[in-house]
Nucleic acid binder design. Structure first.
Lengths: 251, 251
DNA sequence: ATTGACAACTTGTCATACAGGTGTACCAAT
DNA sequence: ATTGGTACACCTGTATGACAAGTTGTCAAT
């Protein structure tokens, strides 16, 4: 087996040893050399086979674990978890530029966060409720100081919404939220820039945050749901309107 | 800065140090603590901050490089390449094996589909409403023929739910639904297998589908919401219970 | 046959060392 | 003063050895 690394090493120039080993391992999994569920040779054995240090092997295995292709447990070994690279739910970046698609993405965010607010009202720990209240106040603060702190304002806004998702105790609500806002962030920055130019109209949003926080604090799921729905409907409409004026003034 | 690792370590149980550091780094990137293009602290500095060995830091950075979130060059350092996971929102396959995580995934599906039902009630085209009715009837049919058609039953069930998502006219509701059920499919098959062994209790589900379809046909968003919520709550509970009995009988 | 200690693995983590790339400050020659 | 080279400090990439912690199979005692 020694030497199959060199065979592929020719393909790339600036690739590190870890890169090369990663490619070989991935190739072996994808092409069925190691079937799903199979136990891989131990790290020391692989290091010996590839004639590299265990460090390099660990790095390669680590990457494939991050991809979901391999899995490992201490004392047991590493095994093939999936033979195809997992592709999750992804939103193409270019979709952000279309008003129609952006509206749809905001609509998806609504479905997510409305239910998150309800779950948070039912299940949030006292610490999580305090954190929601804290982020609502922090958002208030950033809006009182009327500097051109665009990024700060957006961040404070998102921190509140993130706190609600954290409060659900559901990793997937938080994970999906994080992905959506990562996709939306730049667009939101552009929108808020417009909002500031035309005079702050985000004072409404501050109060809406406080109201949502109160509903969650009281454990009133139905009220939290309704208020989050209203809030997101309003802020989505605001964002879309802001982007529209930007577009008009820009052209 | 030392000690901020421990703060988040509580959230997870079987996570390794590398896992924890990875999460913190990812969090810092996603939340803009480190902006795109910024140079990260050196590996030795990070190791000192987190109070772990450089090995752990390298492992974490390596994973985020594989995700496309970080990039590094020898001699220069590591910098933020993107604040957005390239592979989108993804659920690790192994999560399906944990009852707790499975329940959370089903909960996410609820948030998605409840709102989808409401949107469908408001916006569905006549054709889409007919398709929903058709898939509800098709599901009824597969339950009347009492063969061991496990896969058929699950497919018919999912077709109904998919039709609701299609009816929203929102590509992202449909896209996320498709991803979730792709992840859930095998688990649902296992659950339904148990259900059939113990005598069909999916007759309730048939009626629930009809009720949802009726609400959407009438354009009653609030009713559709409520019925979808009830239906998913019931069927999630059914699935979890079925898997539990399977687990008990299997061991 | 069951149980329990034990040995031989595994991965996870730490510490240290060095090679090779990159940027910078300094110094000499012009 | 500008330029050019050079040494130095710092970075990542890699190697090595060691130990902790978890898993599995064995084998003897009951």
């Amino acid at each position: 087996m020694t030497g199959n690394l060199q065979a592929t090493a020719l393909l790339v120039d600036g690739a590190t040893l870890s890169d090369q080993v990663t490619e070989v391992l991935r190739h072996n999994v994808v092409n069925g050399v190691w079937g799903v569920g199979d136990l891989l040779p131990s790290e020391t054995a692989l290091a010996s086979d590839f004639d590299v240090s265990r460090t390099v092997i660990r790095e390669a295995v680590s990457r494939l674990k991050a991809e979901g292709m391999l899995s490992s447990r201490q004392g047991r070994g590493a095994f093939v978890a999936s033979n195809r690279p997992r592709q999750g739910f992804a939103i193409p970046e270019c979709d952000m530029e279309s008003q129609r698609k952006l509206a749809q993405i905001l609509e998806l965010r609504m479905g997510l966060e409305i239910e998150a607010a309800a779950i948070a009202a039912l299940r949030a720990t006292p610490e999580a409720r305090l954190e929601i209240q804290r982020t609502a106040e922090a958002y208030d603060q950033t809006n009182q100081s009327d500097g051109p702190a665009v990024a700060t304002g957006v961040s404070a806004d998102l921190e509140f919404h993130r706190a609600v998702c954290v409060a659900t105790g559901n990793d997937y609500y938080l994970g999906l939220f994080n992905y959506l806002v990562a996709s939306l962030r730049e667009t939101m920055l552009a929108g808020r820039l417009q909002a500031l130019k035309r005079g702050g109209e985000s004072r409404d949003a501050v109060q809406e945050h406080y109201d949502i926080a109160a509903s969650i604090a009281e454990g009133d799921a139905e009220c939290a749901r309704q208020r989050m729905r209203d809030h997101l409907q309003m802020s989505s409409a605001r964002l879309l309107a802001q982007l529209k004026t930007e577009e008009d003034s820009g052209e």
